[in-house]
């Protein structure tokens, strides 16, 4: 296996799928000549030409809708949002059109397409550029929501998302783009709807996605030093959620902490902890704890930003509390 970055892994997935299926194209701001604002589409214009790798004006609602139409007409668009903050402008096309097209046309039309780009908090970019939106899209029937936490998953999940016959919300993480990891060469698919146990443990289950998976793994190392053996479960697909893997882990550990970068109220952790309560109440030795971003817009100042975000220390602390070790 080769060691490559998260961004290269995404690039490989797109290139492989575009080689295999002429219907797949990439469209977005700065994806072609600039090679991507975050260089995810590096070299793709050279490889596939301007028919299939297309720079757009700054007009998110327009090109998202164009993607919806192209998908309805039989193409397989990959629509890149420079970041998911800007996808809010396109929310109508995603939520009112793509997500509902199959249903409200009685199955006549599909929208097999991927909306992808960077989500979550980047570094020091303040309130409008540091937000987690996975819970918004995860609330919508008709959408799938996918969030890779490492390079191998990035490749395998993106390939699976492009092949999927529905609309997939694929949320990457800007801070993870440079992360290096072993990634299988050639065709590599990670099926959607399948969680992954990133660390096996027996005392407490840490459920975390995207960048928070890395935080949970760091917390698990810290907890190990304190004699607490944490299991880290990464759902990878947020919707639909592989709850069986999470519930099996909780059946073993009897304790769980759910971690997310976004805001707590009506967040992903609310859904996951509710499912654990509904389906594994008898397995629990303590209430499920949540570690989330603070309930404020993201501030710019370095110290405030750090305070607003979840930290490894907070995860360790929450795990100690659910393990009665605080």
């Amino acid at each position: 296996m080769a060691k490559i970055t998260y961004r290269e892994a995404l690039n490989q997935a797109m290139c492989n799928e575009m080689e295999r299926d002429d219907r797949v194209f990439l469209m977005g701001e700065e994806v072609a000549e600039y090679n991507g604002a975050y260089k995810v589409s590096q070299g793709m214009l050279d490889k596939f030409g301007p028919r299939r790798v297309i720079d757009t004006p700054i007009t998110e609602l327009g090109f998202a809708g164009l993607g919806v139409g192209a998908a309805m007409a039989g193409l397989r668009p990959i629509i890149e949002f420079m970041t998911w903050n800007f996808a809010i402008l396109a929310a109508d096309q995603i939520v009112n059109a793509a997500a509902k097209m199959k249903y409200m046309t009685g199955g006549q039309y599909d929208c097999p397409m991927v909306f992808r780009g960077a989500g979550g908090a980047a570094a020091r970019v303040s309130s409008q550029h540091s937000q987690a939106f996975e819970n918004w899209y995860a609330n919508i029937p008709g959408l799938k929501v996918v969030m890779p936490s490492n390079p191998a998953d990035a490749k395998g999940l993106l390939a699976a998302s492009i092949r999927d016959n529905d609309t997939v919300i694929f949320i990457e993480n800007e801070i993870n783009y440079g992360d290096i990891g072993e990634v299988p060469e050639g065709e590599y698919i990670v099926p959607l709807g399948k969680a992954d146990i990133k660390r096996v443990g027996s005392d407490v289950t840490l459920v975390a996605h995207s960048r928070m998976t890395g935080y949970a793994l760091l917390a698990a190392e810290g907890l190990a030093k304190q004699g607490i053996d944490a299991e880290v479960v990464d759902p990878r697909t947020i919707r639909p959620l592989d709850e069986a893997t999470i519930l099996a882990s909780v059946a073993k550990t009897n304790r769980a902490v759910v971690i997310e970068e976004g805001w707590r109220f009506a967040g992903i952790g609310a859904e996951i902890s509710a499912r654990i309560m509904e389906k594994a109440f008898d397995d629990l030795d303590a209430p499920v704890a949540r570690v989330t971003g603070k309930d404020v817009p993201m501030p710019y100042a370095a110290n405030l930003e750090q305070y607003a975000l979840p930290s490894v220390a907070e995860i360790v602390e929450a795990a100690r509390v659910v393990c009665n070790r605080a």
Partner: peptide, 8 residues
């Protein structure tokens, strides 16, 4: 107050 930075 340090909440916005360059852009705000």
């Amino acid at each position: 107050g340090g909440k916005g930075g360059s852009m705000h």
